[in-house]
Design a protein around this nucleic acid. Sequence first.
RNA 1: GGCCCCGUCGUCUAGCCUGGUCUAGGACAGCGGGUUUUCAAUCCGUUAACUGGGGUUCAAAUCCCCACGGGGUCACCA
Length: 374
Amino acid sequence: MINSLKWLGINWDEFYRQSERTEIYKKYLEKLLKEGMAYISEELEGNSKSVIRLRNKNKKISFDDLIRGKIEFDTTELSDFVIAKNKETPLYHFAVVVDDSEVGVTHVIRGEDHISNTPRQILIQEALGLPRPIYAHIPLILGSDRSKLSKRHGESSVMKYKDLGYLPEALVNFIAFLGWNPGTEKEIYSMEELIKDFSLKKIQKSGAIFNIARLDWLNKEYIKKADPDELKEWIEPYIPKSNSKIINLLKERINKLSDIKNLYEASELNYFFKQPEYEKEKLLWREEKDLINTKNILEKIIEIIKSVDAKNFTQENIKTVIWPYTEEKGRGNVLWPLRMALTGLDKSPDPFRVLEILGKIEVLKRLEYAKMKI
RNA sequence: GGCCCCGUCGUCUAGCCUGGUCUAGGACAGCGGGUUUUCAAUCCGUUAACUGGGGUUCAAAUCCCCACGGGGUCACCA
């Protein structure tokens, strides 16, 4: 959890570990015992022979929730509930109540699943004579079946999303918008902007389904506007050899960083690194039946490309010299076999971008190879 | 089952408090199209919702009641 928070860029000012605070809890427990607000109860069932129970006054408790308004409970059904196994081992409800007070917590903001825990915590507070913090119970994040999000719905921890190549900024932005909305049409929010605009008053009451398609879209937005150097750093682990040109091309085609790995393993990116294999009939554009025509076109393309200086082998320059020929022969007739010779794929990026990435020598090699196949 | 919370497009939501401006707005996804050599990207367009029933009112998505539906919680866990 600590690692997850750090990754998300959520920081804290103070940190407490309950296991290091047993002396504090013990003091409060003894106070309750002494005042008769709690008692040691001999048990017939359970794990220990005796436990500490709170003397429940069996009254109605109501509290004002910042999000839901007034909530009322009859605490009779709670009976004299257990607050500690013994003086050295308090239970959660007791420990949090003590901690909140000791540490000066003013607002308790937590999931809706804690609503029914609230009355028993209030009962402990009152027995201890401690002030009641302000409560705000926020809606739960739901799985696709509308039940509380859990392992069986998908990834079990925040760090899994890191591993999948989601950016922390995107996840934060996404989660913030689950149950909250600024009331404007702004969708992309940085942490700073969230801190500035977020308000409990605008929080929704009902739970929100974790919709991965929307996270993917948001993540893509963040990838698109990422700093090139940073992006390079993120992408490197997912693709063996790459450069800024390949990365630029890749970033339009992925939702999350790990998509690159999938693209690569599905051999769709191999053409960047080695001569692709394909059937020679693949070189034919749509209605074209005659491989000889295609061979002639390839020959002409080679001739044109040879005329481009290797030092100025940019997509713009190449396009300028090839374009008149595509106008003459029909774009598909020229560009389809060109692209196929370079990538060997039915679907791939624009041949001009690939040309620039591969460089003059490799391009000519592949074109000769295609010609030779025919 | 008891108690508690919730209920607007498939999803996230705006609107609800302070009824009329809501023939219910936006975004994601979907679908259709433009651009284009294919894909991606991009641009444009489009399908789709007030859970139901009563009531209050000249007027209800908005206020009230009931029903139904969904969820949470019922530990010597946290």
